[in-house]
Design a protein around this nucleic acid. Structure first.
Length: 308
DNA sequence: CGACAATGTGTAA
DNA sequence: TACACCTTGTCGA
């Protein structure tokens, strides 16, 4: 699934292209027909994100709540303000970059390739489109989400209550909140970072990468960290996820982090350990380790991230 | 063409 | 701990 950075990009995209717009809401697949009817014809006033949860707020105090789960994604298309077609959500390839920013060039369909065609409405739905939003300027299709529901403002607030601090909303006490939650448990940090009540928005890639960047043993109990170390872990997570929002891609091998080769080949610069098991650590050369932790794969360098 | 994995999570056993 | 969810790209027969 997309981690928190993708959801924040979605909130920004929806705010940019749909805020203030009256939307036609439908469920071509049918599974969301009842919810779509509650939203159809209403105006989206605001889009927000917390962790991996997306909220589209409508003027009649209803909210479209979406969680993409493991393989959900949104596709967009429309006129020039959509910057062509784009997709944000589950990456289909490792390191795949999210648009917008693409050319939007289409080689399909009849006609010639002369002038850019005017926006002529959304295409016929392809595949299982759970929900389709259509404004005068463009459209958005959702597929594969684990949660797609029309809920009240109060119910949306209840969802937020169940979530911990989001490093992409790095304000008023969220850092201290994280420190408190980490130090309170003897659970391994590898588990805590995936717990959305401890820190909202981190997934399997950021977990592995921020633990490596901190040179922290993934099995270290939360309470074994000092408050300072937990704070630095929060700070680095916030920084690297903000980069992800900017880049539309998770890149953690940023400047300032020395690598063994010093200079990484293009296209290989994204990760230190995620999906690099068996390959030499970029810092020390030791083969990157892989283990099943919970139901997820955990990657780490057994040399750089030794128990202290 | 079928099996399987993928940046998740909720629920049952 | 297992699996259901139910999409898509990849890989092997």
């Amino acid at each position: 699934m997309p981690e928190g950075h993708s959801i924040h990009r979605l909130a920004r995209q929806f705010g940019d292209v749909f805020a203030g717009e009256r939307l036609a809401v439908s469920s071509p697949q049918g599974r969301f027909a009842a919810g779509a009817a509650l939203l159809d014809g209403h105006t989206m006033v605001h889009a927000s994100a917390h962790g991996k949860h997306l909220f589209l707020h409508f003027e009649h105090a209803l909210v479209l709540h979406v969680h993409l789960g493991l393989y959900g994604a949104w596709d967009f298309g429309g006129d020039s303000q959509f910057r062509g077609t784009s997709s944000i959500g589950a990456p289909r390839r490792v390191g795949e970059r999210e648009l917008p920013g693409g050319t939007g060039s289409s080689t399909d369909g009849p006609g010639n390739d002369a002038a850019p065609a005017e926006y002529a409405g959304p295409p016929a739905p392809v595949g299982a489109v759970r929900v389709r939003l259509v404004s005068d300027h463009g459209w958005a299709d959702l597929r594969g989400a684990t949660t797609c529901a029309a809920i009240t403002d109060a119910e949306a607030a209840a969802v937020l209550d169940r979530l911990g601090p989001d490093p992409l909303h790095n304000t008023c006490g969220s850092r201290d909140d994280f420190i408190r939650r980490v130090l309170a448990k003897r659970t391994p940090l590898a588990t805590l970072l995936m717990d959305q009540k401890v820190i909202a928005g981190v997934g399997n890639v950021y977990r592995a990468e921020v633990l490596f960047r901190g040179r922290i043993d993934p099995l270290l109990p939360g309470r074994a960290l000092t408050a300072d170390a937990a704070g630095l872990l929060w700070d680095d997570t916030a920084a690297v996820m903000a980069d992800g929002v900017r880049d539309g891609r998770i890149i953690t091998t940023t400047a300032g982090f020395w690598t063994r080769s010093g200079h990484l080949p293009p296209g290989e610069e994204a990760h230190f350990v995620y999906r690099r098991h068996g390959q030499p650590c970029r810092v020390c050369g030791t083969p990157v380790a892989l283990a099943e932790h919970g139901a997820r794969k955990l990657y780490w360098c057994p040399s750089c991230q030794q128990p202290v």
